[in-house]
Write a protein that binds this DNA or RNA. Sequence first.
DNA 1: CGACAGCTTGATCCCGCTCAATAGGCGTGG
DNA 2: CCACGCCTATTGAGCGGGATCAAGCTGTCG
Lengths: 246, 246
Amino acid sequence: MNLADLSDRVCGECPIRHRAVCARCDEDEQKVLDTMKYYRSYEAGQTVVWSGDRMDFVGSVVSGIASLTQTMEDGRTQMVGLLLPSDFVGRPGREFAPYDVIATTDLVMCCFRKKPFETMMAQTPHIAQRLLEMTLDELDAAREWMLLLGRKTAREKIASLIAIIARRDATLQLKGGDGPLVFDLPLTRVAMSDYLGLTLETVSRQISALRNEGIIQLEGKRHVTIPDFQRLLNESGDDADGGMLN
Amino acid sequence: MNLADLSDRVCGECPIRHRAVCARCDEDEQKVLDTMKYYRSYEAGQTVVWSGDRMDFVGSVVSGIASLTQTMEDGRTQMVGLLLPSDFVGRPGREFAPYDVIATTDLVMCCFRKKPFETMMAQTPHIAQRLLEMTLDELDAAREWMLLLGRKTAREKIASLIAIIARRDATLQLKGGDGPLVFDLPLTRVAMSDYLGLTLETVSRQISALRNEGIIQLEGKRHVTIPDFQRLLNESGDDADGGMLN
DNA sequence: CGACAGCTTGATCCCGCTCAATAGGCGTGG
DNA sequence: CCACGCCTATTGAGCGGGATCAAGCTGTCG
């Protein structure tokens, strides 16, 4: 997938059409957005936005993964958000970016210049409604992560992260059954440690431990098989079957 | 202040009028809310909402402090939000509470039954707009807390918390000058430990350490004086003068 | 007075950090 | 082809910050 392919693409055939900030828009609203949008691509590792920089655009992740990262003066870093396809970047009404936004994998974003988008949003309740919904979901996710960061052990942190990634992949692939789950870790060990509030050595050790106990299987560094998802969940410190909100 | 006093009070003289979810409402909208609202009071320590319970109301904190708390099966708890006057509780469209809401101090809330409020919100963009703004602010606060939980030392955590409380009190009292700050800690040691992802013993020890070094002064358990705010900030791990967002 | 909640302080332990060495994958260049 | 550097990851050894267990203090309420 490259920019040339993308630039002709219309919203109607967009893979995140039904989940992104534009999900609630009717056909007319969609058409307006269609003329406003433009795509940007980033390679894994590239910085999309620097903390403190002026943000002149907002946008949605179309494919790939981006991370929101905070850094202290002495270099300690903490990832504060993981942006998956359909997630929104930027805040209407805000001029400067509060975090670094980094492409964790190759990344495609669907962008809007900030000013026109703000104007559009003021006139289009469907957008504001959807954005509120998405923001509330992100707030829930952030709070779940606070429990992980504040109270879980290293082992529980790793198990939780792997379970979350596995669950996401499972829903994307619409796999119903409870057979073994297979997927690739989209994060490096360093990225995982930044997300989990650990060092990369501890991440590596805990992954090895889970592998040695057969809770996960590894091929290479990234390819994971989970023979028994419930067993993984038991290690995550979360209760039973991931108590659904709502 | 008791319920009798409150029940006659009109929105026009509400102390959180200009900051709460109703802040943007015009006079007509305000009048409708005025007839819908009702007050509830709680004593320090009371549980306002139990995690998992059906929530039939939403509301704003009028006075006092409430906390959002998550608990694991084995009893480990993490506070995931501190609700100050004007903060909003509950999520339109959600049926069950995801967290415990606990009155940390004596607490007064301005409530609306959920269904009517949802209807009102659908018809009143001013409310939805303000709620989006507030939710985005909360998300920022949650992410700042993630950095604290994931990467700061116990000492930095305590210094950060005290600085935040001090700053809040300073803005409330509109004290301009840089003289010594004086205020009461609104949280018990246990509540602080739940918020900071520490044990109460560590909280106690770190507070004692800051006291012994003269960075804070204590009278009794709760009454704090900060002779040099910058010196406290230096211990918090945050850069310079608390780089303002926006 | 005793019971109890909130807090402090001490002694000890252990999980995760730090420092360090090693291994494997991959692209580049001789 | 191997040599080399670079990057990512694994594994080991040792240390220390914060948890755990425990004792005691202070103020309040009945």
